[in-house]
């Protein structure tokens, strides 16, 4: 986060809109590059669907909080800004919690307390402090969208690997032959640590290539 704050200009018009978006999605991917928001990343990715739901919920909160923080950036006194951000985030998280409960009780049970825990996800507070508090609403929205989708992308990467190896399915559909011996360890907490470690390794390898080559990767 600090690194990003230092490198990204604070002025409104110094970087293109697409740049702001791509930064979150890829160049400063919250999980694979900044290594933020580890708790939900590891905890709810035992299936691709759970990961997707968690990612979308976080993206929603991020969009809303970034917009509101950016709107109020001139009104919030510096001394109490962190407390104000936390209040704003907590409000939207409560809303998301009730929305998920209304849409699907099953999903709400699978995600458990982790929906409420979005409130302490450092990505959201980090973006409010590092970006939304000093940029226009439009750019804050783009930044939230980029970061949010980057987060969804990372959760999907982890969730699908763990689901395919752990239960032989992807989004509930069987993808591996019946004879496949399931790697139960992938569904256990240990599998989360291993998979994240492996993905980080993959990304580190890709990043080592000459800078332009990375753009063609998914």
């Amino acid at each position: 986060m600090e690194h990003h704050t230092a490198t990204s200009p604070t002025a409104d018009d110094s970087a293109g809109d697409t740049d702001v978006f791509i930064t979150g999605l890829w160049r400063q991917n919250p999980v694979f590059v900044q290594v933020l928001g580890m708790c939900p990343t590891l905890a709810v990715t035992n299936s691709a669907l759970n990961g997707l739901a968690m990612g979308l919920a976080t993206t929603f909160v991020l969009l809303m909080s970034n917009t509101l923080v950016s709107l109020l950036r001139k009104a919030i006194p510096r001394q109490v800004r962190i407390a104000s951000y936390i209040l704003i985030i907590a409000t939207f998280v409560t809303a998301v919690d009730y929305i998920i409960q209304a849409l699907s009780l099953e999903l709400h049970k699978a995600l458990g307390a982790f929906v409420s825990l979005i409130v302490v996800n450092c990505i959201i507070l980090g973006r409010a402090e590092a970006f939304a508090s000093r940029n226009s609403v439009r750019r804050s929205l783009l930044d939230a969208l980029g970061m949010g989708l980057g987060f969804v992308f990372a959760l999907l990467c982890l969730g699908s690997v763990r689901e395919i190896l752990g239960s032989g399915t992807l989004v509930g559909i069987a993808v591996l032959p019946d004879g496949f011996e399931k790697w139960v360890v992938m569904l256990l907490p240990a599998g989360g640590f291993f998979t994240l470690g492996l993905w980080l390794m993959v990304f580190k390898r890709i990043k080592r290539e000459p800078p332009r080559a990375t753009e063609t990767q998914p």
């Binding site: 240990a190 291993f194 470690g197 980080l200």
Partner: peptide, 14 residues
């Protein structure tokens, strides 16, 4: 760095 820490954490978790 982070990666070897994560892998060790996985072993610890096991």
């Amino acid at each position: 760095g982070t990666i070897v820490t994560l892998i060790s954490a996985g072993v610890l978790s096991l």
